[in-house]
Design a protein around this nucleic acid. Structure first.
Lengths: 340, 340
DNA sequence: CTGAAAGCGCTTACAG
DNA sequence: CTGAAAGCGCTTACAG
């Protein structure tokens, strides 16, 4: 228990009266080792407070373990990604794995640099929410034998494991909810059009219109970036529309928050003057006033499934890639009113 | 630019017509190398797309570099810590450093395990927001020569660099604001009393009362944990008080959000029926309704300063420890009304 | 079932 | 200014 002065394999071996090879075998749980030997080694390990040097392990071992996992995250300020990270992290920590976090803040160059870093660190695998612009770097990672699981979207030229929400269905449900409440002019403040999920959500929005025989007014679909500032800017744009929409469907968390700032700032009553549904839920949705109706993505679950798939791939690199499409759930609260 | 099949020092050396020692020197920016040699090596590096193996570097080098930084964070779901992580991460990424994240979710055992992991990974240094219960493990880290910077609070038995907010002054300002608005019964929903910052904030709350000759009613200071659920639970408790307070001062982010859920749920008008100030600000404070008045901690700045101090300590391990006390700022918005 | 030895990809005295 | 060689702390065939 007491922290000890640097003790390595050598010290443990000496203390247990075996060779370092045997100690190594015990550490790696090889079953060949005789029970009595194993016990002796383990007690020496405990006695000396020995901790393997992971850099040395990583350098020497021939096959990947599950010790170091790299994360490539577009925006750590987005609560959705925090949920994902939480899901990954709790599973990782329960399995003794460590996480390297690469938050590239939607910056392609930083993303590239992080991919290089993950290589340099010899991570055992990565979980990435990549953007189309850096796709080929992620593909390179896979070609070079790194286990990779994609979040939010797959790759273009390569099959890979992917875990994502059913964006179209989620957006459909949100839009349908508004339509059933009688709304006919529903603005959609979409996320960055460079991001594929934005298009899937737009598709859901349109599909709902078609289903209910409502014409889609393309002028009602506006977008810029996927951040808070764009939410503010685009909400202002909605308010200036000649024929003001009676409802807004926002494409993500940050946009929702930005829109709320504008609506509250203009003292616009929600839902009486404008109803709202947002994509992405937050644990404090009830702290908003009114509590906002939202399409919940199960970020924690997505993260959890992603790392589970990653571990499986590390064990079995040739396993055929799978796609997990996680359902969303419409959380009906107060921002749309309570009935048609 | 194209990703290449594993190229190591050896390949670069061969391509540049020098020894691997020279290549290593170029990589490490040693100034002894002749200009012409350096150029040749660098072009070989670029040509082969060489990336140093960090595990090998870490294993071999005698002094700490700034490549791998460990983070010990109590709760990644708390926006304050996200800000801190952002500040650390952006600085790290700009300096080619990688970050290992250890989110222990307020769990002492997980914190201890993470500390061990950071040792195992041979991190170059750590930034830790530790709890009193695991203090001795962090102290062990320092004794064993790991550069450590503390956030939020220092250590008991050991001097170390520390970066933290001026909690007492911040809490004083929040309370004073309410008092000046005429409030005499101000409840304080404090964070977990095991956490020292909670006490500092309580002290500020009390100091403001004394300054303005108001008796402190200890029954008005309630606490449990520092999370959302406690915010909910304690707000309910406030509502049940025989003589209901006219204002609430919450001890952190999560508590604020929990309290808001309750107040909105009970349709209690803020600030007319109950005024509110929270410790900790969020970038979406204006998305709340009413926009909440809050004591802003400069989390991003704190993170930034912490990693800067850490890098300095790595360079100069014997430098005497310093404390950076970062000012807070009262962000006056709408949750207290607009004047006495 | 266990040990001696080679070697992972680097860095660093030590010579020259 | 540069190279040959030792070695960081491990893992892994290869013998036995």
């Amino acid at each position: 228990m007491a922290a000890n002065i640097k003790s390595g394999l050598k010290e443990v071996a000496r203390s247990a009266g075996v060779s370092i090879a045997t100690v190594s075998r015990v550490i790696n749980g090889e079953t060949v080792v005789k029970e009595a030997t194993r016990l002796a080694v383990n007690s020496a390990i405990k006695k000396l407070g020995y901790r393997p040097n992971r850099a040395a392990q990583r350098l020497r071992s021939t096959h990947r373990s599950r010790k170091l996992i790299g994360l490539l995250i577009p925006d750590i300020q987005n609560p959705y990604y925090i949920d994902i990270i939480s899901g990954i992290e709790s599973y990782a920590s329960a399995h003794g794995a460590t996480i390297i976090i690469g938050n590239f803040s939607q910056d392609a160059q930083r993303e590239r640099i992080y991919i290089d870093t993950l290589r340099s660190e010899s991570v055992d695998g990565c979980i990435v929410a990549t953007t189309p612009r850096t796709e080929k770097y992620v593909e390179g990672l896979i070609r070079d034998g790194f286990p990779v699981v994609c979040i939010d979207r797959g790759l273009k030229n390569l099959k890979s494991d992917v875990v994502k929400s059913d964006n179209e269905t989620g957006a459909f449900a949100a839009t349908e909810h508004l339509i059933k409440l009688g709304h006919k002019r529903i603005a959609h403040i979409a996320g960055d059009l460079q991001i594929p999920t934005s298009h899937e959500r737009i598709a859901g929005y349109k599909a709902a219109h078609q289903q209910y025989k409502l014409r889609v007014d393309e002028g009602l679909i506006i977008s810029k970036h996927s951040n808070y500032e764009s939410g503010v800017e685009l909400a202002l744009q909605v308010l200036k529309m000649k024929k003001r929409p009676t409802a807004i469907f926002t494409g993500n968390n940050l946009l929702t928050l930005g829109v709320l700032e504008v609506l509250h700032g203009h003292a616009i009553k929600i839902p009486q003057e404008i109803a709202m549904v947002g994509f992405d839920d937050v644990y404090w949705a009830n702290s908003l006033n009114p509590a906002v109706t939202a399409v919940k993505q199960f970020g924690y679950e997505i993260g959890h499934q992603a790392i589970e798939l990653l571990f499986k791939r590390i064990e079995e690199p040739q396993r055929p890639p799978v796609s997990h499409i996680v359902n969303t759930q419409l959380m009906v609260r107060k921002s749309c009113g309570t009935g048609s």
